[in-house]
């Protein structure tokens, strides 16, 4: 589905080159839920942007749905959800969801149908006519997800979508995201800096560390596909969380040497 091979990415800045990604390799299979976790500056967002063809790697190979990422972008193979909801303040919720559909030239009948479908999917019924700034942060993020789902791309790239929300709302949205993933069987790449979130959601956890940005550990989760919040008290869950923490720590140890 997505394969990343030996990718290097260096930004030229005023203070000299910054090594954002170094020799990053990764394999994402269809239907996977992959989390990228690490401290800020570890390149997790950059990696997601490379997959989305928003950045071009200096070295290495990336394949998305059997094509180079830029072709995948042009073929609209993925939906992208940004950190801040990134909704347009001058469009209503349904107007925002229709935005990609307008750009991709869907008929107005299809636009209506798809919008209705995804609004139900993210449980925003009754809020179609509201403007984003009239909604709570959690609802905004749901609208943003609905927008990414609207055109039925089979990959969903999410960049810390719940980062700005409080923990209670985040737990609920996490649960809803899992249900959504199950129902739509999409492939999801998810950037986060919360260990419980990563462990709770993912089938595969990619631990990254900074300077240079690189992968330190890839953990295949043994948790079942159907998960409830209670799973977080199980032994397996705690063990995986432990391993993620170790991975993050070892990244920092390297830095001190």
């Amino acid at each position: 589905m997505i394969s990343v091979e030996n990718v290097d990415l260096t930004f030229e800045t005023n203070d000299g080159p910054v090594h954002a990604l170094k020799e990053v390799s990764l394999e994402v299979k269809e239907g996977d839920f992959v989390s990228f976790i690490g401290p800020s500056g570890c390149g997790k967002t950059t990696l997601l942007r490379v997959i989305a063809a928003l950045e071009t790697p200096t070295k290495g190979n990336v394949i998305v749905n059997n094509m180079p990422p830029d072709d995948a972008r042009k073929a609209r193979e993925y939906g992208y959800v940004f950190q801040a909801a990134g909704l347009y303040p001058w469009r209503t919720v349904s107007g925002n969801i229709k935005l990609p559909l307008e750009i991709m030239g869907y008929s107005s009948k299809e636009k209506e149908e798809r919008t209705k479908k995804v609004i139900e999917l993210v449980e925003l019924k009754g809020f179609e006519k509201k403007f984003p700034w009239q909604l709570s942060g959690g609802m905004q993020q749901r609208a943003s997800i609905a927008r990414a789902l609207a055109f039925d791309a089979n990959i969903l790239l999410m960049d810390e979508p719940f980062g700005a929300l409080d923990e209670i709302v985040r737990d609920r949205l996490n649960g809803e995201l899992l249900k959504l993933w199950e129902r739509t069987s999409k492939t999801i790449c998810f950037v986060t800096h919360s260990i419980p979130e990563a462990v709770y959601l993912s089938t595969k956890i990619v631990v990254m560390s900074p300077r240079p940005g690189r992968i330190t550990d890839v953990i295949q989760s043994p948790l079942p596909k159907e998960r409830t919040l209670e799973i977080r008290d199980s032994k397996e869950f705690i063990q995986i969380a432990q391993r993620v923490r170790e991975g993050l720590k070892s990244g920092h140890l390297d830095e001190d040497l």
Partner: peptide
């Protein structure tokens, strides 16, 4: 806003769009 501009890019929107 940069993320909105990136969003348009992920939709492969044209310059005029």
């Amino acid at each position: 806003d940069h993320s909105r501009q990136d969003l348009m890019k992920t939709y492969n929107a044209s310059y005029t769009q």
